[in-house]
Design a protein around this nucleic acid. Structure first.
Lengths: 192, 192
DNA sequence: CAGGTGGGTTGATATAGATCAAGAAAAGAC
DNA sequence: GTCTTTTCTTGATCTATATCAACCCACCTG
């Protein structure tokens, strides 16, 4: 079983190699946390002050749109999590996060991460490539939501992340796919 | 009238300050170009090899979805332009760009930009912050397309970029807003 | 055990926006 | 200038998905 810091280091080093000394320094600013299922990680209206690495479990990001809970995304092992737009802009976040299972994660404070960017070029590079990776993922999702019908989006999610259907409720999946729970239910019936 | 290199430098330095020597070196890798209206900047199926700075005019990005031309976005003065996902991943692009007016731009090759990232921490930082900026813009657009009706999207675009309606055809705006030209026409009528 | 409480299903109806079709207007082409 | 092509508009349908409403089922909780 890989430790959380090993996982974090692997994840970082797929993008930018760090010297041992750099890693040890960087590592010292990350705090590991265990959070149980159903807890709020961040709140709407607050500036996100942490960058999270998810080592185990599932975190769900969601917003409120006229009283409705709308899922924005899910993070699993190896993913980053957090209201990243708020983290970057330092504006109040209009969405938040909750754990949908017990979760092991590590986090670093905004100020500490900025210091690390100043101090090490290798970490600055990691930051650039991390942002690029997020950007690519987001542009894929944009194409996804724009070019497919509800039915196609459902089928593609079934193909690509079947495990998700075990981990989170239908309602959350429905809002993530941009449809009502009723529609999702009917689509599932159709497939069975 | 600001020169293209002055514009480029300003744009870069809103994100990261460069020393004079760094700027002079960096600048030497950018090539200014004049392109006339209606030209293809990049092609579908090719790896994007340039990063573009638009100094004057409008560039439109678009994809083909079953024979239909779908606008992805528009770049004006001070924007970056290009198939950035392909530029980053080095995979064939599934969309392309054309000029919708005469355009003044400057571009830098992928390999040269990577060298600059290696060479200067300040440019690496600019790259990180540039990606962050793109990411934030993209996450706004995602919220936009997800949370508003066709009518609301139209009204918001009218508010935020009224000039666009002078610069590009209705059909292109319609596909950008994710609706048919007929629907856009009816919405315009409604507002008048 | 009875009685909640919330998620999921199913059916009936409503609606935003698409599609199809045809005319009007504007922009090029020669 | 006229002819042709493309863009825009308007009207008549059609359709995917939302909405509203009832019900079922699983699970808690006392």
């Amino acid at each position: 079983m890989e430790s959380i810091f090993e996982g974090l280091r692997d994840q970082i080093e797929t993008l930018s190699k760090l010297k041992e000394s750099e890693w040890l320094d960087f590592k010292s600013y990350w705090r590991p946390l265990l959070i149980e299922k159903g807890k709020q990680l961040t709140k709407i209206g607050r500036v996100e002050n942490y960058f999270y690495y998810v080592h185990e479990g599932v975190v769900r990001g969601y917003a409120f749109k006229d009283g409705e809970d709308i899922s924005i995304g899910f993070s699993y092992k190896g993913d980053y999590s957090g209201a990243y737009d708020s983290f970057l802009t330092r504006n109040a976040s209009d969405w938040c996060m909750e754990t949908t299972t017990d979760v092991k994660l590590a986090r670093i404070r905004y100020e500490d991460l900025m210091d690390m960017f100043d101090k090490y070029k290798s970490i600055e590079r990691w930051g650039r490539l991390f942002n690029a990776k997020m950007l690519i993922g987001m542009s894929r999702r944009q194409v996804e939501s724009r070019s497919y019908t509800a039915e196609e989006r459902f089928e593609r999610l079934m193909d690509q992340s079947p495990h998700l259907f075990q981990l989170v409720s239908q309602r959350h999946i429905a809002s993530y796919l941009g449809m009502t729970p009723e529609t999702l239910s009917r689509l599932r019936k159709k497939v069975r």
